[in-house]
């Protein structure tokens, strides 16, 4: 398969070494790899190649209306104010102050208040139509590109893989499903 476009689902993040080996193979074959994760913290220690596109479902989830409003109030609005105030000689100090605000206040409020409220009140509503993160993945990633190969990299990605495969197949864009990329990058046998 020449220059394969590979979508890698590694939501559990439990087989990171295998994923890195697969990504290296895809890049070596001249292809592109898009890695979908649900907790970027698990990948913090891994050296991800710069050619790899990483999609963090937790970040993607921030595009849902309740979290988007929360982010507007908590992050983007104050960010705009810091930028407006920090002109000229105040620019450096303003940037530092914004970063400190994000770390000390915005991130904490998001983790301790915003996310729990979303999970309790809104997520059950969204979940009635299936995992909302996968709908976002479909809208912002799958519909924007072509994927020849769907690689399922860990047990926790199985349900998501079934949904993604069904979505792509329904659009007439069924990828080749595999559990390690060398199985499809190698010349087919027999």
């Amino acid at each position: 398969m020449a220059e394969p476009q590979v979508l890698i689902l590694a939501l559990e993040g439990s087989r990171r070494l295998a994923v890195l080996a697969d990504v290296a193979q895809v890049i070596a074959a001249g292809g592109t790899a898009t890695l979908v994760v649900s907790d970027m913290a698990k990948w913090r220690r891994e050296k991800l190649p710069k050619q790899l596109r990483v999609v963090d479902l937790t970040k993607l989830e921030l595009r849902l209306a309740p979290l988007a409003v929360e982010q507007l109030v908590l992050v983007r609005g104050p960010g705009f104010l810091f930028k407006a105030v920090g002109r000229g000689p105040l620019a450096g100090g303003s940037k530092k102050a914004n970063r400190a605000y994000q770390r000390a206040f915005a991130d904490r409020v998001h983790r301790r208040v915003g996310l729990p409220v979303y999970r309790r009140l809104f997520q059950p509503l969204y979940a009635k139509k299936g995992d909302p993160r996968l709908r976002l993945l479909d809208r912002y990633v799958l519909q924007q590109g072509r994927f020849d190969v769907l690689l399922v990299a860990d047990p926790g990605s199985m349900p998501a893989a079934a949904t993604v495969l069904a979505n792509l197949t329904a659009r007439g864009a069924a990828p080749t499903l595999c559990f390690d990329v060398s199985a499809v990058l190698s010349a087919p046998v027999g």
Partner: peptide, 17 residues
């Protein structure tokens, strides 16, 4: 996971050298 795995497994295994 088990349900999805059972559905996907027959389609995801390939023969290679």
């Amino acid at each position: 996971i088990d349900e999805a795995y059972r559905a996907l497994l027959p389609h995801g295994v390939h023969r290679r050298p």
